[in-house]
């Protein structure tokens, strides 16, 4: 387990040195928000419509920006055969998967945290601290599921010719069960619901996260074995 942290720490150290992935992901998600905000310009004052549309827009921005990052996570490992070097280390394959999840989670979550204020400004929300914490919880649960599947599929598409194209095609259908409750819960929170009303969504997100983390952990060795 501790070695998963070493892998994640190594990834984050490399990432924060160049900030390549983080910057491009953040700018991309910001652009998505801006584009939607402009196209909804006419009724941004209409709270009812905004409440219906904004949560979906937020998750579209996060999903596509996150995918941008995911498609890169294993590329850095292949540059000098590092993935092979990792597999030669005395750790099981699952630890490599967990390490990659931790670093991806940190990077994508950071991107989301930086994007969120812009979302609040562009869509004219005013949120209390309680609401914000609840929103962060949902962001975390949704992002974890996204990363759990995304990291596995990123490794899976590594050996294909059309890697960047294939990842979204494979990922999006599997993400539906995490995106729907995440969007629903986000909408609920932004509309002022308390945590008590969001139990079904939170439960589904937690189940998805757990199931896909465990299964992906189990099958990861088959994805990287040559």
């Amino acid at each position: 387990m501790i070695r998963s942290f070493y892998i994640a720490a190594k990834d984050l150290k490399a990432e924060f040195r160049t900030k390549q992935m983080l910057n491009s992901m953040f700018i991309f998600s910001l652009l998505v928000l801006v584009v939607f905000s402009i196209s909804f310009g006419d009724f941004l004052g209409d709270t009812e419509k905004v409440e219906k549309l904004a949560p979906g827009v937020l998750w579209i921005a996060f999903t596509f920006a996150g995918m941008l990052g995911l498609s890169r996570t294993f590329v850095m490992e292949t540059e000098n055969g590092c993935l092979e070097a990792l597999m030669l280390c005395p750790v099981d394959r699952g630890a490599i998967y967990t390490g990659k999840i931790l670093s991806n989670l940190a990077i994508v979550f950071l991107m989301e945290a930086v994007t969120l204020p812009f979302f609040i400004i562009l869509f004219n929300y005013s949120l209390g601290i309680g609401t914000l914490l609840l929103l962060l919880l949902i962001l975390f649960l949704g992002t974890f599921g996204f990363i759990a599947v995304g990291t596995l599929l990123s490794a899976l598409t590594l050996g294909t010719r059309t890697r960047e194209l294939l990842l979204p095609v494979l990922l999006l259908p599997l993400l539906l069960p995490v995106l729907i409750p995440a969007v629903e819960a986000t909408a609920g929170i932004l509309a002022g619901n308390s945590i008590g009303n969001l139990i079904p969504e939170i439960r589904l997100l937690a189940v998805y996260d757990l199931v896909f983390f465990v299964i992906s952990h189990l099958v990861f060795e088959h994805v990287v074995s040559d």
Partner: peptide, 9 residues
């Protein structure tokens, strides 16, 4: 691997 994930999803 994808067949397994897909079936669960």
């Amino acid at each position: 691997v994808f067949g397994i994930l897909g079936f669960i999803s």
